[in-house]
Amino acid sequence: MLDFSVVVNRWQDLVYGVGSTLALSCAGIVLALCIGLLGAALQRSSRLIFLVPVRIFVEVIRNTPFLVQIFFLFFALPFIGVRMDPTMTAVIALAINGGAYSIEIIRGGVESIPRGQIEAGAALGLSQFQILGDIVMVPALRAIYPALTSQFILLTLTSSVCSSISANELTHYAQRIESETFRSFEVYFTITGLYLVISWLMMTTLSMLGRRLFSYPNQ
Rank of each mutant, 00 (worst) to 15 (best):
Q151Y: 13
T156I: 02
T181G: 15
Y101T: 02
L157R: 10
I96L: 13
F57H: 12
T171Y: 14
S150I: 02
A100H: 03
G99Y: 12
G121Q: 06
E104P: 03
S159K: 01
T89N: 03
R83E: 15
T158M: 13
I96K: 04
P86M: 06
Q175V: 10
H172C: 10
Q151G: 12
A120P: 03
L73T: 06
T64R: 10
S112I: 01
I105N: 00
I80C: 08
F72K: 12
G125H: 02
L170C: 09
Q151M: 15
P139D: 03
L170P: 06
I96S: 07
T171L: 15
F72M: 11
I80N: 05
V60D: 08
F79H: 14
G109P: 00
T156W: 01
P114L: 12
T87D: 05
F152C: 00
N168Y: 08
I131Q: 03
I106M: 07
F57E: 13
T87P: 02
S179K: 06
N168F: 11
M84D: 05
L155D: 00
L157M: 09
F75D: 05
E59C: 10
T64Y: 11
F72E: 07
I80H: 11
V82L: 15
Q130E: 08
A95V: 01
H172W: 12
L77Q: 10
A120H: 04
T181Q: 15
I135G: 04
E59F: 13
L141P: 00
T64K: 12
I80W: 13
S102H: 05
V68F: 15
D134E: 11
F79S: 15
G133M: 13
E59S: 14
S179V: 02
R83W: 14
G116V: 11
I135H: 09
L126H: 08
V58R: 11
E111N: 12
A143C: 12
I70Q: 01
N168I: 12
L124S: 04
S179H: 08
F74T: 07
I103D: 00
P78Y: 13
I96R: 03
L154E: 08
